[in-house]
Design a protein around this nucleic acid. Structure first.
Lengths: 208, 208
DNA sequence: TGCCAATGTTAACACTGTTAACTTGGAGCA
DNA sequence: TGCTCCAAGTTAACAGTGTTAACATTGGCA
């Protein structure tokens, strides 16, 4: 069906693009279906031929966000274990800082409840798996401890997600203000926070 | 001014309580000034004698949330350094998991932009300082590395915040499903993720 | 060529936050 | 005691939202 005066022909994509532009500038709260419809020269209910509701439109934005995050993580050089792990961490945080409003939408929780949009959960897994594979690779290479993979992945993910969220909300300095922060934090997790003097004393709790 | 049919007398507090109840059950997006006014038997514009706007009401909820979080962190036993650190981490995550919608509001970022509500930023600092003091104490005791305090605090905060957010949004199992997860993650940060064999080889990067 | 399903339209409903203009009535003062 | 003032309520209204129902257009296919 070609584009005519009546049949727009590209409504779905244009609505997506317009919503993404508003999201980037003003956050998901500023996304209004009526405003988007007006901007692309169409009536508001026309959007409902392409999106079930407002939340579905937001979910689609988040899905493309996870795809972009996945690509950014996949582009990290996986040659040396340590460089790969730090690289993944830096790439993750860099993504969040370059797209703060999109990242907030992806992990908002309140706007997009988990389970309501299967394709969204799947897209999230796609990004998560890159992180998990890198850690598994580090274990196979003998570089990382042979602790349970789920535990190590949860730790790494918590760290980079927490750092991302805190920096984009201004609670911690971002990469512009403190370029070394993300790398310092990642290194600290790898090396451990305990002073070397105490290492052998305290190991009884987690190296059975 | 006593409470009569006309002059309510307790509107501010009742609106706060009612909003908190809605927040707990349905999240901040479900908080409607008109609905709250109706529930406490008052007209909607009456709320504007006590709150500048909807956002100010939400900010007040978040402020009391930070005060509660601070109390929960202060109640952790600070005797032994390691137990104090793990205790703080567990208490932090436990708070988030017991008040997921309140925690999301406190760290939402999109709803309450940093800088817009000075009392809110101050309340956040009040909770943050407890965490920082515990870490500084761990360093003074010689238990933690003498790395920059800001770096260690940022790492610890990122970890517990990320874990909180990911568990309450269902991306990671919460304390009911996996009671050991939070402690395992905290321990992993303390001990480090690198296998012992590699420790002395890689230390050249962060112990100058 | 004629029909039909996809994709638009307008009108309307039930909400929302917020402001303006008006009213009430308790507190403090002459 | 009586009067005035002001904090704290009221109703009416504006501009906006997501969403649905009912109707209109039109390109592609039998």
């Amino acid at each position: 069906m070609a584009r005519t005066a009546y049949h727009h022909g590209d409504l779905h994509q244009q609505a997506h693009d317009q919503a993404l532009a508003v999201l980037r500038l003003e956050g998901d709260g500023a996304i209004s279906l009526r405003a988007i419809a007006k901007q692309i020269g169409v009536s508001a209910p026309a959007l409902y031929r392409h999106y079930a509701d407002r939340e579905s439109l937001l979910a689609e934005l988040a899905i493309s966000g996870f795809a972009a995050l996945r690509q950014q993580l996949l582009s990290v050089d996986q040659h040396a274990p340590r460089a790969a792990l730090i690289g993944i961490g830096l790439a993750y945080v860099a993504f969040a800082q370059s797209e703060p409003n999109l990242y907030r939408l992806m992990f908002g929780g309140r706007v997009l409840p988990k389970g309501a949009h299967p394709r969204l959960d799947q897209a999230g897994l796609g990004a998560f798996n890159v992180l998990q594979d890198t850690i598994a690779q580090g274990q196979r290479a003998g570089y990382l401890k042979p602790a349970p993979l789920a535990l190590m992945t949860a730790t790494a993910w918590s760290l980079v997600h927490g750092l991302s969220q805190l920096t984009i909300d201004g609670h911690l300095p971002n990469a512009d203000a403190e370029p070394q922060l993300a790398e310092g934090i990642t290194s600290l997790l790898l090396e451990g926070a305990i002073a070397p003097t105490h290492k052998h004393i305290d190991n009884n709790e987690d190296t059975p």
